[in-house]
Design a protein around this nucleic acid. Structure first.
Lengths: 223, 223
DNA sequence: CATTTCATATTGGCCTGACCAGATGACCGA
DNA sequence: TCGGTCATCTGGTCAGGCCAATATGAAATG
């Protein structure tokens, strides 16, 4: 049956399949625009429209002068699920909720959990050093702390708020791209949080989480 | 400062602002591509890239041969979203989150808000006296407190957790129906919360909310 | 031999102009 | 008054061009 979808949607699916079947694993560079358009038998403007769709859904990263890079397969976006319109209120809500959650976590954290958090930060540092964006480790860190609280519902709420902050749509439409410097700052803040958890200091951990989310909000909203 | 974002992102924001400031309300047809491109001083391919982004995020609907139509900014929440399976964890999560939220609310509550909360409890008592279940007033009470915190995202999370606790499925699967006695107990607990808010006592309000949610969890889970 | 600098090639970004296909509205004839 | 036809408007896709950023390699210098 004829595919009645927009051409850019068809091209985007074709490119997604190239990445998902291993031809271009995460981190790999795709062929240049002109070559890819030729391979797929479409025009360059049509390919560019597809690449925009893929950029928005987080499947690729485009670097001018360098190329198009496959990224980790993104989680399917909840269909326009939104907890609110205000990014500032989102960050404030995260501060209130994750600040309360970390107090629970600090009371219940185990040596195994601390070790796991350390591993996440080691992996985060490695990603930054290699010039990549440690988006997954950032998420893991916040969720691992919520897991320490021993409550799956709290974990789900924290994940939901994190994903709201970090949806591909939210990041790219705001045009704010994290840099290695901002990731290093985030890593430092994560290490301060871990130090307080390690010291069994719930109020210190809460203050460090508040400081981290305040700074994160500033990095997100200010250009 | 120069806008370093992609041109399509800038154009998409401009179009979004046209729709949000009432110039093109939901359902209205936007100018044709060629005219819009001319108005915004960009090329048609660049405008089309922006329109793709807007189409993906649901802000517009494109009909070939007919035009570009503004849509409602957000679609309804997906039904039956669940944060987790454990009712005990749900109640604990509510205690953590609503306990943190009420501290914010206590710091910001106004005489008008206190009066509104009183009205809700008056209506709640009337419903109980007439043998009905004050489900709506219960919900209003929790959400009104969250509203006092002045953060729509917190309000959305509190609403979500409340609805999770009180979903028809949740009530029926547990076979637990509230009685006038349990509703009177809930009303007394609500009044204790309001008294602490009235006295500008954040920690007292938090403790009263914890007590209320603990008791509510017991009423819900124990047969 | 290592480092730095510069030129060139490759890359994405944005544009102009053209043609194709679907939808809509006006007009004409029955 | 209604149905059909045609012109015009709309979006869809394409070819080709030029600009700017980045990467790479060669040559020069220390």
């Amino acid at each position: 049956m004829t595919d009645t979808r927009r051409l850019y949607q068809q091209i985007a699916d074709q490119v997604r399949q190239l990445m998902q079947n291993g031809q271009y694993p995460p981190g790999a560079r795709l062929p240049a625009e002109r070559e890819l358009a030729q391979q797929l038998g479409v025009s360059r403007p049509s390919l560019r429209e597809a690449l925009i769709a893929l950029e928005i859904d987080g499947s690729i990263e485009i670097r001018m002068g360098s190329g198009i890079y496959a990224t980790s397969p993104s989680r399917p976006l909840p269909a326009n699920r939104s907890l609110g319109e205000s990014p500032m209120e989102l960050m404030q809500a995260r501060a209130v909720i994750e600040g309360a959650v970390i107090v629970q976590a600090a009371a219940a954290v185990t040596p195994e959990a601390l070790s796991g958090l350390t591993d996440i930060l080691v992996a985060m540092r490695r990603e930054i050093d290699e010039g990549r964006k440690p988006m997954e480790q950032d998420r893991q860190f916040h969720l691992a702390i919520a897991d320490c609280a021993g409550n799956a519902v709290l974990g789900a709420v924290v994940a939901q708020l994190f994903d709201e902050r970090h949806s591909p749509m939210s990041d790219r439409m705001r045009g704010r791209f994290e840099t290695p410097e901002t990731w290093r700052a985030a890593l430092n803040e994560h290490e301060a949080i871990l130090a307080c958890l390690d010291a069994r200091n719930p109020l210190g951990a809460q203050a460090a989480m508040h400081a981290h989310l305040t700074a994160s909000g500033r990095r997100w909203l200010e250009s």
